[in-house]
Amino acid sequence: MDGPGADGELRSFRSWLLETPDIRNHAKISWVTVDPDAGEMGAGTLETLQLITDNFWQIATFSLSYAAWRNTRAKSPRVTIEHDGKIVTVEGSDNDTIERIIQALTEE
C-alpha cells in the first residue's frame, strides 16, 4: 500500500484477513521486511504483507475479503498485489477490481 496512512491501513487489512476464517485457516499470512539499500540508514522496514495459499478458492476469498475491507474505509491507499512477477495496482472494490485481482493471481 502507498499513500498517507498506508502503514496503518496495511495493518488493518492484515487484521481483516486474520478475522476471515477461510483465509486464517487455509493461508499463511506474514510480514516481509525490506533491508535498506546500500548507503541508506535504518533497520529493515515493514513493507509487504505476504499471503501464501495453495488453491483458487483462497484467491477468490482473498479478493472478496479485500473488497469487503475496502468498503469499510472512507479512503484507502492504493494496493499493489504481486504474484509470480505480475503486478497489479488497485484502488477500488467494485467487481472489475475483484476480477483484476483474481486474474493477476491466477495467470501463469
Results as ranks from 00 to 15, higher is better:
S63C: 05
F56A: 06
W31G: 03
V90G: 08
A43E: 10
I87D: 06
G8R: 14
T72D: 08
M1E: 07
L105H: 03
H83L: 04
G39P: 04
A68T: 14
H83A: 11
E19G: 15
A74Q: 11
I98N: 02
P4D: 13
P36A: 05
S63A: 15
R78Q: 08
W16A: 13
L105C: 15
D37L: 07
G44R: 07
N95L: 11
S15M: 09
E19S: 12
E107P: 00
N55W: 05
R78M: 09
Y66M: 06
S63P: 03
G42R: 01
S65T: 13
A60C: 02
V90D: 06
N55S: 15
A6D: 12
H26D: 06
G92D: 13
A74Y: 08
W31Q: 07
P21V: 09
P4C: 09
D35A: 15
T45M: 09
L105V: 06
T80G: 09
S63L: 00
K28A: 11
D96I: 01
G85L: 05
D54A: 14
R78H: 07
A67V: 10
R78P: 08
G3S: 13
A104T: 15
A104H: 05
I29T: 03
N25L: 08
D22R: 12
R100G: 02
S65D: 08
R73N: 02
V88L: 06
R70K: 14
G92A: 12
T33E: 13
I59Q: 08
S30K: 14
P4I: 12
A38K: 10
A74K: 13
T33A: 08
T72P: 03
W69L: 04
L64W: 04
G44C: 02
D35F: 00
E40L: 05
F56E: 07
D94N: 15
F13G: 06
I102D: 00
R24G: 00
I52S: 12
I59L: 12
E9Y: 10
L17E: 06
H83T: 04
T97G: 03
D96W: 05
I102W: 02
W31L: 13
K75P: 02
S12C: 13
G42Y: 04
P36K: 07
D35L: 11
T53Y: 07
T20S: 03
I81F: 09
N71C: 11
T33S: 09
E40W: 06
V90M: 11
E47R: 14
G92K: 12
Y66H: 12
L105K: 05
D84R: 14
F13L: 15
I59T: 10
W16L: 00
G8C: 07
M1W: 07
